[in-house]
Amino acid sequence: MSRAGTLTRLERLDLLASRLKAQEPMTVAAIAEEFGLSRRTLFRDLAILRDRGLPIEADRGRGGGIRLHRTWGIGRLTLSYREAVELLVSVAVAERMEAPWLIANLAPIRRKLAASFSPALRDRIDGLAQRIRVGGAASPAVLQGFSRPEEKSAEALCRAFLEMRLLGFDYTDTEGSESRRRVEPHHLMLNYPVWYLVAWDTGRGAVRSFRLDRMRRAQVKPEEFRARPAAVFADAFAGIAAVAS
C-alpha cells in the first residue's frame, strides 16, 4: 500500500506543512514519490495549504523545487501582553523622535499592534505618543549616578502608563532618602539614556518627576485615573523642574 493510502488527507497536509516549515530542500518529484502521490494530487494539496495562508513557491517542471517564501513567518508573530505593551511604548517613542527613515512606517505598525488590544484600550494607544517627550542627552552629572532600571519596575511602569492605572513604587531621591509613592503615571520623558516619569503624586497632591532607575518594587494598582489638563504639567517639562522630594 502506498504511503498516501495510509494517511488521511488532513494528516498528509499537516505532514507536508511541517516539511515545508523545516525549510529542507525539496523537489516536486521527491515529495510526490515520498508521499506516494501523483503530481496532480501534490499540487492540489499545495493549493489547499496556500489557501490556509502558507506562501508556497514551486518551480515549474518535475524536478522543480518547493519552498516557503522567505517572509512566510511575517504576520504570524505572537507577542505576550508585556511584549506588546513595551513594543507600543517603543513605537510611540520613535514617533516622537520623528526619525525620517522610520516615521512613514510607524503608523500602520501601531495600528496593527492596537488591533490585538481590547477596544477600551485602543483610544489610549492612539494618544500614546502625545504623552511621551523626548529631550536632549542627559548631563554628565546625571550620567554619573545613572544605573540600569529594575526590569520588573520598568515593566510595571509601561503597563500602568498604557492602561492609565495608579502605580506604587519605592523611590530613592537625590539625597538618598527612601519613600513609598503612589502616583498617576501621566507622561514619560527621555533625556537619553535616562527615563523620567512625570506623574501626579496622590500623596502630595502635586506633580512630581521620578527617574526610572531610582524606582524599585513598582506595582500596578487596580484603580484607573483620568488625564489631567496639560497645563498642570507645564512646569515639569521646563527642564524637569518639578523634581521628586
Rank of each mutant, 00 (worst) to 15 (best):
G127I: 12
L42H: 02
I109G: 01
A17D: 00
R50E: 10
R122G: 11
R62I: 12
S80G: 04
G75M: 07
A17K: 06
L113M: 13
R122Y: 00
L88C: 09
V85W: 05
R111H: 08
E34T: 02
Q130Y: 09
R133E: 14
A99W: 09
G36R: 02
T27M: 12
S90A: 13
R122P: 04
K21I: 14
S90P: 04
S80H: 07
V93R: 09
E33A: 15
I48R: 09
D59I: 11
R131V: 13
L13P: 01
E24T: 15
T27V: 10
D14Y: 07
S38P: 03
A29I: 10
P119E: 09
I56V: 12
R70Y: 10
D45Y: 03
I31P: 00
D123L: 07
L79G: 15
A104C: 04
P25D: 11
E98L: 12
E57D: 03
I66H: 00
A32E: 02
W72A: 09
F43E: 07
R124K: 15
W72N: 02
R70A: 14
F35D: 01
P108L: 11
I132S: 02
Q130H: 10
I74Q: 13
H69C: 03
L113W: 01
A104W: 02
E11T: 14
E34S: 02
L77A: 14
A115R: 14
L20R: 06
R124Q: 14
R131P: 04
R50V: 09
Y81N: 13
R70F: 10
D51Q: 08
R131T: 12
N105P: 05
V85G: 05
P119N: 12
K112G: 15
P100H: 06
F43Q: 03
D123W: 03
L42M: 10
M26Q: 02
S116N: 10
R111V: 08
P119H: 02
E34H: 01
M26D: 03
W101A: 13
F35E: 00
A32D: 01
R12H: 00
I74L: 15
A94H: 04
L121G: 06
D14W: 10
V28P: 00
R9W: 05
L37F: 00
V85S: 03
V28K: 02
A99K: 15
V85Q: 02
L79H: 14
D126N: 05
N105G: 12
P55C: 04
R62Y: 08
A129I: 05
I74E: 14
A47N: 09
A22Q: 13
R40Q: 11
R131E: 07
R76P: 02
A99N: 13
A120T: 13
Q23K: 15
E57F: 08
A22C: 11
R67T: 11
R133I: 13
L10V: 15
A94L: 08
V93H: 07
T41E: 02
I56H: 01
S90D: 08
A58S: 12
D14R: 15
A58P: 05
L54P: 01
R110E: 05
L42R: 01
S90K: 07
L79I: 13
M26I: 07
A120K: 13
E95A: 08
L106M: 05
L42P: 01
F35N: 00
M26N: 03
N105S: 12
E33I: 12
A104L: 06
V89L: 08
A120W: 06
